[in-house]
Design a protein around this nucleic acid. Structure first.
Lengths: 132, 132
DNA sequence: CTGTATCCCCATGGATACTG
DNA sequence: CAGTATCCATGGGGATACAG
């Protein structure tokens, strides 16, 4: 393993903060195939409002992960794309996503088991499953 | 790349929800070397309250990622450790952490640049840097 | 030591409506 | 279409005090 300090080390926290939003990773991922217009992103992603999408893109932009391009014209056309830096984050994101595909079932199973074994104490400690 | 659908796909979201907490990944990481008592965890991690630590552990437990063991005795002794499933998550976590060590500087630089280029519009779109 | 119970702040993010 | 401005509900999580 490469990293050894996490805890007090803020450098590592930085990346987690980047992925600690509901939408950051999703939007990053949606941009992986190339530049996309906001309306496209909203269609691809689904369930994200205009406001929240913009906020997310601004965040990513601020952190140097995406780049905004404004093509002039009658109805102004805007495109967002990953920066080289943003592209490097696709690896870790994929690692996480791949894990979910591999072990997601086990997590679900564990949740069910927990609900079955001890419904007395339990409601899920928040964050059981998005349910969608 | 392995995964292709993210957006609508809840299976992938599951993993992100797991890492979308301030403390989940940190605690998981702090447990990588073996069983740990809460007090040890708090020392190793730093800056996490008893309450929040417990909540985090409960969450992880609920999702089948950690296991709780209660060794009886006068002052009850408790230990938490990763389950095999939890262990599988260390890979992705490490991927993210490694990324932070590799590219963290660039993110910081981008943030600074953003602050310098356009202080007019900007305060950081929230979530600039934990500052610690 | 381990864990719970409160109280409280505030950021995320959803809904909606409006401007260019 | 792109983006902003409000309003507002929810919950994470910090501080603190307390219980087993």
């Amino acid at each position: 393993m490469t990293t050894d300090a996490f805890l007090a080390d803020c450098r590592a926290r930085l990346a987690f903060d980047l992925l600690s939003n509901t939408w950051n990773a999703v939007v990053l991922w949606a941009l992986r195939d190339g530049p996309r217009r906001p309306v496209e992103l909203r269609e691809r992603i689904g369930g994200i409002s205009s406001k929240v999408l913009t906020e997310t893109l601004r965040r990513l932009q601020f952190n140097g992960l995406v780049d905004r391009q404004e093509h002039p014209g009658a109805p102004v056309r805007v495109e967002y794309q990953l920066t080289p830096l943003g592209r490097t984050l696709l690896g870790p994101i994929d690692a996480v996503g791949a894990w979910a595909f591999e072990y997601g079932d086990e997590v679900i199973a564990a949740q069910d088991a927990a609900c079955a074994d001890g419904p007395e104490s339990s409601g899920p400690p928040t964050q059981a499953g998005p349910g969608g």
